Simulated assay, not measured.
Amino acid sequence: MRTLNWATLGCGVIANQLEQALESEGRKLYAVANRTHANGVAFAQKYGIGTVYDSIDDVFTDPNVDVIYISTPHNTHINFLRKALNAGKHVLCEKSITLNSEELNEAVALAAANNLVLAEAMTIYHMPLYKKLNEIISSGKLGTLKLIQMNFGSYKEYDMANRFFNRDLAGGAMLDIGVYALSFVRWFMSSTPDQILSQVKFAPTGVDEQAGILLTNREGQMATVTLSLHAKQPKRGLLSFDKGYVEIYDYPRGERATITYVEDGHTEVVEAGETAKALAYEVADMEAAIAGDRNVMHLDYTRDVMDMMTLIRRAQWGMTYPEEER
Rank of each mutant, 00 (worst) to 15 (best):
G273N: 11
A113Y: 12
D264N: 15
K232G: 07
R35M: 02
A223K: 08
G50S: 10
A44W: 00
Y125Q: 04
C93P: 03
I148F: 06
A284H: 12
K46H: 13
A113M: 04
K131F: 05
N105M: 11
K277D: 15
K201T: 09
W317L: 00
N86T: 12
L311I: 02
I248T: 03
R313E: 06
V67D: 00
L129M: 03
H266L: 03
E268M: 04
L182G: 03
T267C: 07
V52A: 04
G143W: 08
L239V: 13
I259E: 04
R294P: 07
I248H: 10
F43S: 05
L110F: 13
G237N: 11
Y47Q: 05
L110C: 13
L18R: 09
R313W: 09
I248C: 09
Y321K: 12
A203Q: 07
N75G: 04
N79W: 01
G273E: 12
I49V: 15
K235F: 15
A223W: 03
A87H: 01
E323I: 03
V207S: 03
S154G: 01
M174A: 10
V117Y: 08
A231W: 07
M308L: 11
S191I: 02
T267P: 00
L215P: 00
V225Q: 01
Q199V: 03
E157I: 06
E263S: 12
F60N: 00
S154W: 14
A15S: 11
D66A: 02
L81C: 01
N100W: 15
D208K: 00
D208T: 12
G48D: 03
V91Q: 03
N16D: 15
A42H: 09
R303W: 04
M222F: 06
T310A: 09
V117I: 11
L238A: 13
N86Y: 01
V41E: 06
G273P: 02
Y53G: 13
T205W: 02
L110D: 13
E23T: 06
Y125L: 05
K243I: 02
T76N: 02
H126M: 07
D304P: 05
P193W: 05
V65E: 02
E106I: 06
S55F: 05
L169N: 08
T3Q: 13
L29D: 02
R326E: 11
M319F: 06
N86E: 14
L239S: 11
K156P: 00
H77E: 04
L129G: 00
A33N: 04
L227A: 07
S183N: 14
E323Q: 08
S138M: 09
P63T: 05
A211R: 08
P73S: 02
E135P: 04
S139Y: 09
A87Y: 00
R27P: 00
K235Q: 14
V262A: 12
N86S: 13
Y249M: 15
V32P: 00
A38R: 15
F184G: 07
R314P: 00
I137P: 08
K131W: 05
H230W: 06
Y155K: 08
D62C: 12
I148K: 07
Y251L: 08
E271L: 05
Y249R: 10
F188L: 02
I49W: 02
G48C: 06
R35K: 07
V262Q: 11
A112S: 15
Y281N: 03
L145D: 14
R256F: 07
K146W: 12
L229Q: 03
Y69F: 15
L197N: 13
L29N: 06
D159E: 06
L104P: 01
P128M: 06
K201M: 08
V32L: 01
E263Y: 04
T205R: 11
